[in-house]
Each structure stands twice: as structure tokens, then as C-alpha cells.
């Protein structure tokens, strides 16, 4: 059995800085695996351990993701190997283009049974890539999955809805996006990290026609409201009502 895990490499948002004009500075933000995809990787690794499957990570991004440390970081999270398209024309792709390139990779990895991914990326959280990828591959798609059981030729998934749990049986091959609760992402240990450098990595040439369907005009941080400071005397008449009125006015 072959499980593909589609994941995104993105800047660590803890290190993104906001300039005075609201623009974002990514220069100090190191590239990391999107946290929700790390949960998908862990689920894939656990499924693979149970049934002896191969887990292949697939990803697309700019040439910056073809970085030794970035690749080892991904490979230390339960992947057996990694296939990527790393091309500067693939920087900041929209969901449609991302799905198109992942389709290219998945088609090269013929014979895959299951594609897992996080239900959205940790930056944009568009929640579109999984369904568009499935549509392009002609495969069934299930999202918001909280547990997966492998059966003969199919999987049984649970989805947590607002007030119920839905159980869905899906024939393979299928594309499934998972919630973070599906599996706690591992903290890579020494063995994972030392083994990562020896795992195969293949960088494919971009063969997909990328026509952007979305144009990003600007990305800015929201204006920060100044901290208000109003002092009311507790001993005044009707002080509590004045406090309540001030809070209502500020909201």
C-alpha cells in the first residue's frame, strides 16, 4: 500500500514581524512544516506501521524548500521518502495551482492508495487543496476526518460534526483531509532526525501550466487598536453604571 501525504512548507508565524506600515517581514521566519499537515504525517505513519505501507511526502513551493534542513525536518516526521516540485514560479501558489502541481506529483507516484493532508494550511487555511486535488485525480474526497480505519479496499472515516459523529466508508484510492485531533504530531527524536538524512528525496521538474486564478494584491497586518485608559472613581455615585457604560461604548 502507498500513502501520499501532501504538506506545505511555510514561514514559522512566531517569527513573522509586522512593519510600521503593516506589511509583513518574513526574513527571520524559518520554514517549517504546516502544523496541520504534521498531524496528517503522523496519522500516515501510524497507518503505515499497522499495514506495512510506504509513506511518501509530496509538496510544492519555491526553490527555498529544496533546502537540506527543511527536507530533513519533513522526513523526520514519519515519511519514507519525499517528492517535491521546488520552483520559484511556485512561490505563494493559490489553492488551484497548488492542487494542479500536486496532481502532477501524484500521477507520477502511480499506484497510490490514499492521499492525506491537513484540512487547511496553517497560514491561509483555505481548505481547498484537498477537494481540488481529489477532483483533478478523479478520486473521492472526505474532509474533516478525525479517525481512519483501513479495511479491504476501503477506509472507514469518522467526521466530527457539530452535534454528531458521521461515519463514512470510502473506496480507495481516495483523498482525505484530517483534523489535528486525528494524531498528535510527533516531536522528532534523535533516531528520526539521524535517519532523515538518509531517506530518498526526488525533486521533479515543473510540468504543470500555472495560470493564477487569484491575484494577491497585498498582505497586511490589521491595525492595532491603541490601549484605552479611562479612570473612574469607585466612590462616585452610580460608579458601576458608569463602568458598564464605558465598556459598552468601547466594544
Amino acid at each position: 500500500m502507498k500513502i501520499l501525504v501532501a504538506f506545505k512548507i511555510l514561514p514559522d508565524d512566531q517569527d513573522i514581524r509586522v512593519a510600521a506600515d503593516g506589511s509583513l517581514d518574513f526574513s527571520k521566519a524559518k520554514p517549517i512544516v504546516s502544523s496541520y499537515d504534521a498531524n496528517a504525517m503522523e496519522e500516515a505513519a501510524q497507518l503505515a506501521k499497522a499495514c506495512g505501507a510506504e509513506v511518501v511526502g509530496i509538496t510544492v513551493g519555491s526553490s527555498a524548500i529544496d533546502d537540506s534542513k527543511v527536507k530533513k525536518n519533513a522526513l523526520s516526521r514519519g515519511l519514507d521518502r519525499l517528492v517535491m516540485v521546488a520552483d520559484d514560479t511556485c512561490d505563494n501558489l493559490d489553492s488551484h495551482a497548488t492542487a494542479a502541481v500536486l496532481t502532477q506529483i501524484a500521477e507520477k507516484e502511480a499506484g497510490w492508495d490514499l492521499i492525506l493532508c491537513g484540512d487547511g494550511s496553517a497560514d491561509n487555511y483555505a481548505q481547498q487543496v484537498d477537494v481540488q486535488l481529489a477532483a483533478a485525480l478523479g478520486a473521492p474526497s472526505v474532509n474533516g476526518v478525525t479517525s481512519i480505519k483501513l479495511q479491504d479496499g476501503c477506509i472507514v472515516c469518522e467526521r466530527a460534526l457539530e452535534s454528531s459523529i458521521e461515519t463514512v466508508e470510502v473506496s480507495l484510492p481516495a483523498v482525505v483531509s484530517v483534523t489535528p485531533s486525528i494524531a498528535e504530531a510527533r516531536v522528532p527524536g534523535m533516531k528520526d532526525i539521524l535517519a532523515a538524512g538518509k531517506k530518498p528525496v526526488e525533486a521533479l521538474v515543473l510540468e504543470t501550466d500555472l495560470s493564477a486564478s487569484v491575484e494577491v494584491v497585498s498582505v497586511k497586518a490589521p491595525d492595532q487598536a491603541s490601549r484605552a485608559c479611562e479612570v473612574l472613581e469607585a466612590g462616585e455615585d452610580r460608579a458601576i453604571e458608569k463602568v458598564a457604560a464605558a465598556i459598552r461604548a468601547a466594544l
Binding site: 534542513k69 525536518n73 516531536v187 522528532p188 534523535m190 532526525i193 538524512g197
Partner: peptide, 9 residues
């Protein structure tokens, strides 16, 4: 790189 990754873990 491996030492950096271990540090991050």
C-alpha cells in the same frame, strides 16, 4: 543541521 533539528525538537 541535525544538531539544529534536535535543538528544535
Amino acid at each position: 543541521e541535525e544538531q539544529e533539528l534536535i535543538r528544535e525538537s
